[in-house]
Design a binder for these strands. Structure first.
Length: 560
RNA sequence: GCCCCCAUGGUCUAGCGGCCUAGGACGCCACCCUUUCAAGGUGGAGAUCGCGGGUUCGAAUCCCGCUGGGGGCACCA
């Protein structure tokens, strides 16, 4: 049908905008190419007096295979599809590509759904709705339940001579490839079963032997042009594309076939997937052509790379989306950050709320070059989002991280669960601007939940202060604090700050000693707030202990 | 080996022929603020826009070549 004007997909946009305006094709405004790919179909339809069909609204899909936990790259693809759908008022479809029986992993579907739900990427159609069961009119949404559809397509291709059965053994194929490699020839099936067998033989053997079905690449058709929305026209030489398998010997389709069939019947308008799929795009284009179907708009997204610039994989460490959830990253920070991997709005905006992302996301501003996943920047952004959160909400989000077992990074197992949520709520403001990840909370807060600290005498003596001075200072602090009325920040500051000068110490030195005495640490949230949160009793006990520790230490030193 | 894609500071990027003595952000350094740690503020280092040719009065921006990086080449997706 249509052939996009050769050249660059971005060039003719103004032209389309004009066309769109005159035809009132609202949805195409945000997706000019959309207009081109099926706008013509729509126009014809309109000319016959009909309205716009369902196919005129954007329909995109995320189609993972259940082979493990989805990693950042997979989910970034999901996010772009979701953003595009929401931006254009279209539908986001979730489809499970489980045509490989061998690689199926137990629980993988659950982690896919969990990842999407965590990030708030809700789907309009998919294998499982919130209340169980599939939802949507184009199901089933699991490929293993659509085998009949693929079989029909294969039969049609077979009947038209666009496909043929192949009986070659894995051993023969293997030897063939080695041979090609050795001769520096382009790899590919040698068409043994097409050229060496008569059609009668093929038909007979197909009836009695296990075999695969291969697509017959039309080598006579000239170059195959893939019009990629992001990269423009990419030409492939058909002779270099081999007769790939479309139906496996177990009766399941391969990715290529299932993908094309499903995208067609599910009326997908835009296929956005990672760039690693670009080399197989010409196969898909050829399949669409052979089946007489209109291909969707293709957009191959830039890849997400590891620090070594290689395709993201397990060996790069944390790549699973759910790992980020467990590490205390906020979903809003995660989506914001991922949106910036391959997309940008302008030269300065980079913090986007979910709504702003939906409002501004645009395929035209998706880049071409792969992007290294820069975890440091993600962590910075996460801290930003944590600081922006209302304290009460942050407290709620922190709670599960405190309550999980010590071995998983939670508070010490000695601390009773459930943790006092009200107490956590009072503590949260003290650490809010110090948190970059929620899983840091237990470490920052543990002393609030544990017994009295037992700091070493040496830790109670600040730099530049003698042990005697420190002992006297803490003793005096203890005395003075015994006497104060209200135990609040103002009272504490009013009595402690002047004492530093009185004692001839810098505030940092005095407060440092008290901090260690009261929290057992040299680093903590601001002292007065911490002491208030800890409570009078506890602070006084800790101070007396500290004075005692220093006394013992001095006694030992003087009587060797 | 064959095919394809890509190329702006360490990283994410803005830039679609003159606004660029290349802008923003992360990270890094310094200073300020400060009771520690953060947060915040100010300033700084860091890019001959991978290299070489063109086109043009003028190129990071267009064209060609090279180099480099990446991806793909299964009865995996």
């Amino acid at each position: 049908m249509h052939r996009f004007p050769a050249g660059h997909s971005r060039l003719p946009q103004s032209y389309f905008r004009v066309a769109v305006n005159t035809t009132h094709l609202e949805s195409a405004l945000n997706a000019p190419l959309t207009f081109l790919s099926f706008g013509i179909r729509a126009l014809c339809y309109n000319a016959r007096g009909g309205g716009w069909s369902m196919a005129d609204t954007v329909r995109v899909r995320f189609a993972p295979s259940p082979t493990g936990e989805p990693h950042i790259g997979n989910i970034r693809t999901a996010l772009f599809n979701w953003l595009f759908a929401r931006h254009s008022g279209g539908s986001f479809v979730l489809r499970i590509e489980d045509t490989d029986q061998e690689r199926k992993v137990e629980g993988a579907l659950d982690s896919i759904l969990a990842s999407l739900r965590w990030l708030g990427l809700d789907w309009d159609e998919g294998p499982e709705s919130e209340n169980g069961g599939s939802n949507g009119d184009y199901g089933p949404y699991v490929q293993s339940e659509r085998l009949g559809l693929y079989r029909e397509a294969v039969d049609r291709l077979l009947a038209n001579g666009d496909a043929y059965p192949c009986f070659c053994s894995p051993e023969r194929l293997d030897a063939m490839r080695k041979e090609q490699q050795r001769n520096q020839q382009p790899p590919g099936y040698d068409r043994h079963c097409l050229t060496e067998l008569t059609s009668e033989e093929r038909e007979r053997r197909a009836g009695e032997e296990r075999h695969v079905v291969r697509f017959r690449i039309p080598t006579e058709g000239g170059t195959v042009v893939v019009n990629d929305y992001i990269r423009g026209d990419v030409a492939y030489e058909p002779a270099l594309i081999d007769d790939f398998v479309i139906l496996k010997s177990d009766g399941f389709p391969t990715y290529h076939l299932a993908n094309v069939v499903d995208d067609h019947f599910m009326q997908i308008t835009h296929v956005m997937r990672a760039e690693e799929w670009l080399p197989s795009a010409p196969r898909h284009v050829l399949l669409y052509r052979a089946l007489g179907w209109e291909p969707p708009v293709l957009a191959h997204l830039p890849m997400i790379l590891g620090p070594d610039r290689a395709k993201l994989s397990k060996r790069h460490g944390a790549t699973s989306t759910l790992e980020y959830k467990n590490s205390g990253y906020l979903p809003e920070a995660m989506t914001n950050f991922m949106a910036l991997l391959g997309w940008s709005l302008d030269d300065h905006t980079e913090v986007f709320s979910r709504d702003e992302l939906v409002e501004h996301f645009d395929l035209d501003r998706v880049g071409k070059a792969g992007a290294i996943f820069n975890a440091e920047k993600l962590t910075w952004m996460n801290g930003l989002y944590i600081r922006q959160l209302p304290a009460e909400e942050l407290a709620e989000r922190i709670l599960p991280f405190l309550e999980r077992p010590e071995a998983e990074g939670g508070l010490p197992d000695g601390v009773a669960r459930p943790v006092d949520a009200a107490y956590v709520a009072t503590l949260t403001p003290l650490i809010q601007e110090r948190l970059k990840r929620l899983d840091e909370a237990p470490g920052l807060l543990s002393f609030f939940f544990e017994g009295l600290p037992t700091p070493a005498a040496s830790d109670l003596v600040p730099k530049g202060v003698s042990p005697e001075q420190a002992t006297d200072a803490l003793a005096m602090v203890t005395d003075k604090l015994e006497a104060i009325g209200d135990w609040n920040e103002e009272a504490l500051e009013a009595t402690l700050r002047p004492m530093a000068e009185e004692l001839g110490l810098k505030t940092g030195q005095l407060f440092g000693a008290i901090r260690v005495a009261v929290t057992g640490r040299s680093v903590s949230p601001p002292l007065f707030e911490t002491m208030v949160a800890l409570g009078r009793e506890r602070c006084m006990d800790a101070l007396r202990n500290a004075v005692g520790t220093l006394g013992e230490s001095a006694a030992q030193a003087s009587s060797p």
